[in-house]
Design a protein around this nucleic acid. Sequence first.
DNA 1: TATATTAGTTCGATAATCTGTCTATCATCA
DNA 2: TGATGATAGACAGATTATCGAACTAATATA
Lengths: 149, 149
Amino acid sequence: MSEDPRRSEPNLGLLCFFPHRQMEARVMGAVAAAGFDDITLAQSRVFQRIGPDGTRISDLAEQARISKQTVTFLVDQLERAGYVERVPDPTDARARLVRIAARGRAAVEVAVVAEAEVEAEWVRHLGRRDAACLRRALTRLREITDPYR
Amino acid sequence: MSEDPRRSEPNLGLLCFFPHRQMEARVMGAVAAAGFDDITLAQSRVFQRIGPDGTRISDLAEQARISKQTVTFLVDQLERAGYVERVPDPTDARARLVRIAARGRAAVEVAVVAEAEVEAEWVRHLGRRDAACLRRALTRLREITDPYR
DNA sequence: TATATTAGTTCGATAATCTGTCTATCATCA
DNA sequence: TGATGATAGACAGATTATCGAACTAATATA
């Protein structure tokens, strides 16, 4: 019954880690099982930041907190595999927009279903009340932990 | 005022990502600023899983979800830099326990202070009520997202 | 218009990770 | 008890992810 006094309360940052890791693993597993087994975790972390109208390499880099060079490297692979395409940015001839391509859209469809399944499990475990509370607190916390909206 | 209909509610897994990333970055920054600037993110992710009485390589691997070989590689570096030491496991002559060494304890001291600072900022932003609610929900969520207690 | 900045790429180096293999020790069970 | 199989850790080689430096083309600024 008594607690080990050396084990203190885990901090909120660490507590956030476990759900995120599980979500990522479950979604990647579902996507791979659906035949999209040539996408890596690093690629997916760039891919999931592509906006509906396409996103620039440099914006992807900033949001994922990795160098432009690394994003170029990963987008090259995503493009070769048919998940994304590069199109000119009409507002700036230096830039190109990375957009989700046909194969990418198909993978997203699988991913959103898997996401919803995992989230439903969580809500079932927590109960409606705590789940709503969790979402609200995390949404507010995002205001100060994510510079991108 | 009106929402872009294409941007749906971010899932809970993603929402957990931002706080975790910020906590990790802030703690790493504080530790590096205090002179422990020879520790990498990958090393720290293994390091933080070492228990108070030492932990085996294979247990660290399982908890961090990386291969034993990678943990051996990272622990080699942590040991050379004085953050950890390897001692024989008295219960099994095949195994060795990775334990936090003097320099490691000094780094942990800095880390826990930084952690508390970040968490205090979060609580200030959320308010006592939502912060307590967040901690409770995350603690319960850990039951089903972290197999290690 | 000359100069500085920005977007993206290529190149080379390094860090992190995996699979396969090996040795020593432990566990099982006939 | 002794043979067999499993486990803990380490070593070697290959691959993936990442970075910093340098480059080109286009844009912004003074």
